[in-house]
């Protein structure tokens, strides 16, 4: 089983924290409100376990923007909102008095734009200290429960491995990094937003990630 040392986990969490800091700044500017961040949680889990972790946090219908990235470091970043929250975000960004039907129509397009900005800020900062290169695929808009969002068959990294090796990737382990955020309710009690960011890596990516972490740590 793939293991990260305590120090490697610590470093990974700190990079995640830095990435989320940048992402929160982008979101904060968009919603003109402070975004409060939780402490990062990290777990090396299978994709199935990852789905269960998400269920524990939210079991209602979720809306997500998924950004796959590939190259030296392959994986998936997800920006997830509980369903009602995403409409709230769209309302905050567009107009307070927009009818629900119009909001719903604009939900996908708006969230893709927002997700793109936030996840790019996050991933660029996350990899700032590493020497790996990667490229983004187009962001996707997803709606469903947590099992669906982390579905192994739709997960790019797992899918590629499955296709290449002809193996069932169910037992693949992934690093799952998760962090909650919510907007400050000091100013707009009725319009607080919350959601979370999840980062998944395939096992191949984990090997590269571990190598990068070791290089960085060996210089300190």
């Amino acid at each position: 089983m793939f293991m990260l040392t305590e120090l490697e986990e610590d470093a990974l969490k700190e990079f995640f924290n830095m990435g989320l800091g940048m992402a929160a700044d982008s979101l904060s500017q968009m919603v003109d409100n402070e975004v409060l961040l939780s402490l990062p949680q990290l777990k090396v889990a299978s994709f199935q376990e990852a789905a269960r972790m998400l269920v524990e946090n939210q079991n209602e219908k979720l809306v997500a923007v998924r950004q796959n990235f590939k190259g030296e470091l392959g994986g998936t970043a997800l920006l997830i909102f509980p369903g009602a929250e995403s409409l709230e975000l769209v309302r905050t960004l567009l107009s307070e008095d927009m009818p629900l039907e119009v909001l719903t129509e604009l939900e996908q397009e708006t969230l893709l734009d927002v997700g793109n900005v936030i996840l790019n800020a996050f991933l660029e900062s996350f990899t700032q200290m590493m020497s790996v290169s990667f490229e983004f695929e187009s962001a996707e808009f997803l709606k469903g429960n947590s099992n669906f969002l982390l579905d192994i068959t739709s997960h790019m990294a797992a899918q590629e491995r499955s296709l290449m090796k002809g193996s069932v990737a169910e037992h693949e382990r992934a690093v799952v990094l998760m962090m909650d955020f919510k907007t400050s309710d000091e100013e707009q009690k009725e319009h607080t937003l919350s959601g979370f960011v999840v980062l998944l890596f395939s096992r191949e990516a984990l090997v590269i990630l571990k190598r990068e972490l070791d290089t960085i740590l060996s210089m300190l």
């Binding site: 830095m18 800091g21 700044d25």
Partner: peptide, 24 residues
């Protein structure tokens, strides 16, 4: 010294006379 670089955070720190440094 923080990754949380939101303007409100910076203002809160500077309002108290605390410096503000972006990580890393």
């Amino acid at each position: 010294v923080t990754a949380n670089i939101q303007e409100r955070m910076r203002m809160r720190a500077e309002g108290m006379g605390v410096g503000f440094i972006k990580k890393p």
